[in-house]
Design a protein around this nucleic acid. Structure first.
Lengths: 165, 165
DNA sequence: GTTATTGCAAATGATTTGCACAAGG
DNA sequence: CCTTGTGCAAATCATTTGCAATAAC
């Protein structure tokens, strides 16, 4: 976990009169231990692995806290899951491309899109605070070579697939 | 309701071997009677006004149908509600700006953003199918004049506010 | 007639909450 | 101590589903 995270967190905790607890620390460590997106339930499972009696409620409450502190961001990948992205501290304005063939999610940054969005926003009489761009795309790899490594991976794992129909 | 909608719908219904029913017709008419965004529950209430014993289940099922036919689109306005947007037929690639002060949602189209997204996508080795841009912004009107008509409206109606915390 | 559709009520599943107990400052 | 945090189980709430009755084609 980054220094930047610790600092932002400390500040937030103090300003809100909150307390530092072992459970929170463990959950937060887990959140930032990878750069993977996750659902609340997935995080709960990960936390459970190292802490057999961690509570689901505490995981949900800690997620809410991190989102409020803007250390964690709720994103929409179009799969009807509430997904969280821990990478906004390192890449504060990154965006997402989702492949509708293989399910792969690619994060990217693009200053051009930034600038254009700001222009549009100003033109409409507002001041931009943040923007999120989601691109849904198809896999060139699959079209050209008839196969795509992520497609297979996705089939096997079954993760990140739409849950509802 | 537009001709384009009727046609797309007919085609879809036939191709899937579905049937035309009075209930469906009424619900669909209601969906496209305004350009307002709505939640499933809101649509249900609207439908109920003209059809006292319309069923919630049928409303949900019809929404799913329209989404599948790409006549209606599920969008993310960041308010933890599943929101539907009936305006993608008229404006096939419009985007949304949400004011975090007053809650106002503005739809806009911008060819520049289109082009840039396509570039990024190609650069990443994919082919863009669709993109959605959500801009969160603050209200210039509120800052400059100390007030904003939508702020008041929003307070009064209570709609489009986050439901969960 | 045969198959899709409807409406109801019950089921589901993610998230939240009340409460008694534990722990931080 | 005093207040916030935790864990459990129960409550919520949007959405889905099973099923018997009904309506398209």
């Amino acid at each position: 976990m980054d220094e930047a995270i610790r600092e932002k967190l400390e500040t937030f905790i103090r300003r809100k009169g909150l307390r530092r607890t072992a459970q929170r620390d463990r959950i937060i460590a887990e959140v930032f231990s990878k750069d993977e997106h996750f659902s609340a339930e997935e995080l709960f499972e990960r936390v459970r692995r190292s802490d057999e009696n961690a509570s689901r409620a505490t995981v949900y409450r800690t997620i809410a806290l991190l989102v409020e502190a803007d250390l964690l961001r709720q994103i929409d990948l179009g799969d009807d899951q509430t997904t969280y992205d821990p990478n906004f501290i390192e890449k504060p304005s990154h965006n997402h491309l989702v492949c509708i063939d293989c399910g792969k999610v690619v994060e990217f940054e693009d200053p051009g899109i930034e600038v254009l969005s700001d222009c549009v926003t100003r033109r409409l009489g507002f001041r931009a605070v943040r923007h999120s761009v989601k691109i849904e795309a198809t896999c060139e790899q699959l079209r050209k070579h008839g196969r795509c490594p992520n497609l297979i991976e996705r089939r096997l794992s079954g993760r990140r697939l739409r849950k509802r129909r």
